[in-house]
Design a protein around this nucleic acid. Structure first.
Lengths: 119, 119
DNA sequence: CTAATACTTAAGGAGATGCTTAACCATTCG
DNA sequence: CGAATGGTTAAGCATCTCCTTAAGTATTAG
């Protein structure tokens, strides 16, 4: 069973547009605190606080080298919220996902999709 | 003053364990306010406030007949958060979803279209 | 060395959240 | 009718959230 307090913090972390913007940026690769702060229209301490929320939720990690802190997404960190959402879908909506799960369990997904890349 | 997006309110609504419990109950079918309140260990007004949050997020609807209000899930209401989460997955994790999308577009199960609405 | 860069910490405030109790409809039962 | 049922509203309060400014700490460049 899923731990509800983990879901609390994960969904809470994603309920802020600035934090979602940070996640969207980090999907494209690691970034420094300054880089993440640039498009956000708020002070640096505010960004630091958002990053603290994301780190507490296990969505973002960071390491400091010299005076630069580089942040990156934690792989699979969004699996918890995603799984919960899939479980709460109505039966009719759930069929596609179950088909996907079946295919995932039956064999490797990489062969069927290797010919297409993101635009 | 603050302008919250749909994703803000949706993720915010799901960040509370009591509200997620309400959603989990409603997936199994509609229920009255009293039924939803029973397992929640809080006062009825508190439950009403949680329901108001879920209704404001477009996740739950309700109609009153006589003195009984019956609540139900809005079909496809969780599609927004779900889609955002799918988009933020790392490329390696995203392949399965793209496979699922491909199967859906190719004429998969007919149920998913009729049960989802776009705002 | 000094200065600039890149964060970091501390303190605080306006407003939101999650709960409470008390009182108040409106509908249905006897 | 009066009482019970199911829900609703109002008010208040402790806590949390998101942001601010001011004043730090390291680290690197000149």
């Amino acid at each position: 069973m899923l731990n509800h307090s983990d879901l609390d913090t994960a969904f809470r972390a994603l309920s802020d547009a600035s934090r979602r913007a940070i996640v969207e940026r980090l999907v494209r690769g690691p970034a420094t605190v300054g880089t993440l702060a640039e498009p956000l229209a708020m002070s640096l301490p505010a960004v630091l606080q958002h990053l603290a929320v994301l780190e507490a939720a296990g969505i973002v990690t960071s390491q400091k080298v010299g005076r630069v802190r580089t942040c990156s997404l934690v792989p699979g960190a969004l699996a918890g919220p995603t799984a919960w959402l899939q479980h709460q879908r109505l039966p009719a909506e759930r069929r596609l996902d179950r088909l996907g799960d079946h295919l995932a369990a039956a064999g490797g997904p990489e062969a069927s999709d290797s010919s297409q890349e993101q635009p």
